[in-house]
Write a protein that binds this DNA or RNA. Structure first.
Lengths: 205, 205
DNA sequence: AAATATACTGAACGGTGTTTATTTTCCAAA
DNA sequence: TTTGGAAAATAAACACCGTTCAGTATATTT
């Protein structure tokens, strides 16, 4: 009686199709083009059908976010190769910034857009960011333990490094940066890179 | 023949009413409750009337943003009092963070939300952020000139300090922060404050 | 084959930003 | 003071949106 198993598999496959199409639309057409109706069109089902697989749009976007964070984690795993912890930190920072440039719309969904976080009910923990956060956290902890950085507390260290990178990236992503400073739009990436290099040099012990 | 003058004054007054109501709604009910229809209700005009005074919603939000930046600039002017440039930088940082906590929805409109930036047509400069940016820029320049900080380039210095503060604030504002770290929601402000204090200590020469 | 359970959808509800044709209001000249 | 034309305001519609629900079609069990 493998019918219920097949049914479950089919349910999972439909969810996959929905999430993949949504992710594709975000990347190719931008977040604002993603609507239940547009997703339904692309998977050739009626809009109402999507609600048989997802409670609401926020839950759907949460799953897209989950996939995006999995991609970021894989990037970390393949691009962080050095033995020296501080060099690994530099690699992590580069991988993070590169990700934000290669997938700006996904970065937005992961770190800026409100919608996917509404999927979390009161007091429920957000797990999507954990692997990426932990990667940085334990790296900072190692750097602190081995006296490679000026930080004392690993949580403050993690939030500081992450916050620094995210601040520059998100200001630029939302057009607040290049239009106010004397730096032209096309030079911004280099300035951001330079600021991050300088920051890492500054926290080095 | 002061009729055209009066007409212009009335036009400006109507725009004021619209912007004030929109700002009030953002602060009191949140950005997502702000719709052309809701604004029209509150000023007791039809929705279509608003389009006689604003080309679209983005232009309207741009004017709300203008006012919000004016408020931030006034905060800077009244709260930055010290003679020593580095102490002024500490005061600026505190004023910035305080503003984000007292007016989180306005902070969102100023630095995160896309909509008001759509009001700028191609290649047009964004002027709203200038006074606040310049306040930080010339302060950083003074700190560099007087050898009070480790930075060499004032633009990099400005973007670094601003980015650091904005990164922590916006991650927290969008719920990406407290739910991932072991820091509880109510302790986050203290952690952010501590991180910023530590950062300022680190850039000090 | 009939009954039941599952999957799906058309149509609607209430909301959004925006446009257009129409009506109302205002003001200057006759 | 009445009237003609400009200016201001609006009702209604358009094209979207997320979501719900009654009803239909399909698949499975009896």
């Amino acid at each position: 009686m493998g019918i219920i198993e097949r049914k479950e598999r089919e349910k999972a496959e439909m969810r996959r199709r929905i999430v993949d199409v949504a992710a594709k639309m975000i990347v190719e057409e931008g977040y604002e083009k993603v609507s239940i109706r547009n997703i339904a069109d692309k998977i050739e089902y009626s809009p109402a059908t999507i609600y048989l697989y997802y409670k609401d749009k926020d839950q759907l976007l949460y799953d897209v976010q989950t996939d995006a964070f999995a991609t970021l984690s894989r990037e970390f795993q393949t691009k962080i190769t050095e033995a020296d912890p501080f060099k690994r930190l530099e690699q992590l920072a580069k991988a993070y910034v590169d990700f934000s440039r290669e997938h700006p719309e996904l970065y937005d969904l992961m770190f800026i857009i409100k919608a996917p976080m509404n999927a979390l009910v009161e007091e429920e923990k957000w797990k999507n960011g954990d692997p990426a956060y932990d990667a940085l956290f334990y790296l900072m902890k190692e750097c602190i333990d081995k006296k490679l950085v000026k930080f004392k507390d690993p949580t403050i260290a993690t939030l500081s490094v992450w916050g620094f990178a995210h601040g520059l990236i998100s200001l630029h992503l939302r057009g607040r940066c290049s239009k106010v400073s004397r730096v032209s739009e096309e030079d911004m990436p280099k300035v951001v890179d330079e600021a991050i290099r300088e920051y890492l040099r500054m926290i080095k012990l």
